[in-house]
């Protein structure tokens, strides 16, 4: 039984903003099902009381001095943008025309 169906791949790819072809959907569904089944074995190792670790070396309250220092100019910040206008990033319409 395959947990990751083609429909699920299409849904996840949509959430991740990646267009996928029908061929890719089939291929990924197969591969990801095998991977998902394999990685799900983590559940065999743990119980409800096992604490979580999100970060290998715990650190708390990391601050630096709050001082003004040189930063990127507007021009530098925009230098890699595919499109810019009037000192801003330029993007396509946010909303559909309909």
């Amino acid at each position: 039984m395959s947990e990751i169906t083609p429909d699920l791949v299409r849904h996840l790819a949509g959430l991740a903003r990646i267009l996928v072809t029908d061929e890719e959907v089939e291929h990924f569904a197969q591969q990801l099902s095998v991977i998902a089944e394999s990685v799900a074995t983590v559940n065999k190792a743990i119980d409800a009381d096992t604490p979580s670790t999100s970060h290998p070396i715990p650190m708390f309250n990391v601050f630096r001095e709050d001082v003004v220092r040189p930063s990127l100019t507007q021009e530098q910040a925009l230098s890699g943008a595919p499109d810019a206008a009037d000192g801003r990033f330029k993007v396509n319409a946010i909303l559909d025309e309909e």
């Binding site: 998902a36 990685v39 983590v42 190792a45 743990i46 096992t50 979580s52 670790t53 290998p56």
Partner: peptide
């Protein structure tokens, strides 16, 4: 819970 959450717990066991 089944995936990411469980993996974070395994991380503790490995430590």
């Amino acid at each position: 819970d089944k995936y990411y959450g469980a993996a974070l717990k395994v991380r503790t066991l490995i430590q």
